[in-house]
Amino acid sequence: MDMKRRWLWGSALLVWFLIWLNSQFPSDSRSVTIYCSHDRSHSQRILDRFEQETGIVVDAVFDTEATKTVGLTERIRSEQVRPRCDVHWSNEPLRAVLLAQDGHYEILPEGVGPGIDSRWRDEAGRWCGFAARARVVAIHPESLSSSEIPRSVEALADPKLLGKVVMADPRFGTTGSHLAILRTTLGPQRFRELLQGWKANRMQIVSSNSSSRDRVLSGEAWVGLTDTDDVEVVRRRGASIGEGFLPEDGVILLPNVVAVVKGCPHPEEAVQLVRWLLREEVEEWLASSSSRQIPLRNEVPVDASGLSLSQFEPLEIDWSAAADQLDDAVREAERILLNP
């Protein structure tokens, strides 16, 4: 390599290195950090609007449901002594409840989330729910008629569905929350019997809710336990897929939850962001997006294709009691459904 070319390469590398070094240091502008486990494509747009309106820079860390990792909830725990996160936006409530119980959240100021009913809030005011998803069964329409759609979780143990029911790994995400809620409502004995019934009916276990839906799409399974947003995403792409809300159990709605992390570096901006996220418009945007969230305020307008709270009879859930059941529910599911 001649000298001139060596200089050229050297300078290019130096410039690259300097750009990289500069990118490693944060800017001085007002900012807020959010840990968000909601669908990035929707939440990013909402956070961008917040940034435009307030001028506060949002540093977002998004979650992934890959089973090879633990999620942002564990990150918040591991950062307890020196939090980095200001606002936690969780897409399911139980793990947030556990964080609140362990003292990771500040008490929210009075008046945040006006119009949201107290059953979607923490009694101590440490978190507030908004825009929920419903637990549903995805249905393969060519295999099951509308009259054959299961109406309760116990119907999934029906021998007619032998080997044709699929569920995501019960230890992660909303499936874990679903089981914890079932253990709370059914009681430990009936819960174990339910799992044994599922096991006897050769329930398939896959890595995530989206995989559960995909097995229904391909016809390998006729019924798949999943969330409303997972079904809606493929519907909007033209897929033919049905859904059922398991009305005999009471429809399980899992709201998004926001909270301010205790000892966070930007408390003022955090509260500002939480107030902003709990506005009606945000629920409206989420309801009209492909994640088809269900607004927790009846006055929020919903499209014809969307879902509103008045359509269901949601199950009354004691969030703290359900969160306390999470560990046992996961262990029992693991022992009965997953052990080799």
């Binding site: 944060p26 494509s41 990792t69 996160c85």
Partner: peptide, 28 residues
């Protein structure tokens, strides 16, 4: 790498692997 990135990357740090997994998860 995803595992350590999700838990340790400072907020605002670019991460191709995380982005990929998020896109996957949300069917993008």
């Amino acid at each position: 790498e995803v595992e350590a990135t999700l838990l340790l990357a400072p907020p605002g740090h670019p991460s191709t692997s995380l982005e990929l997994h998020q896109m996957m998860h949300f069917r993008n």
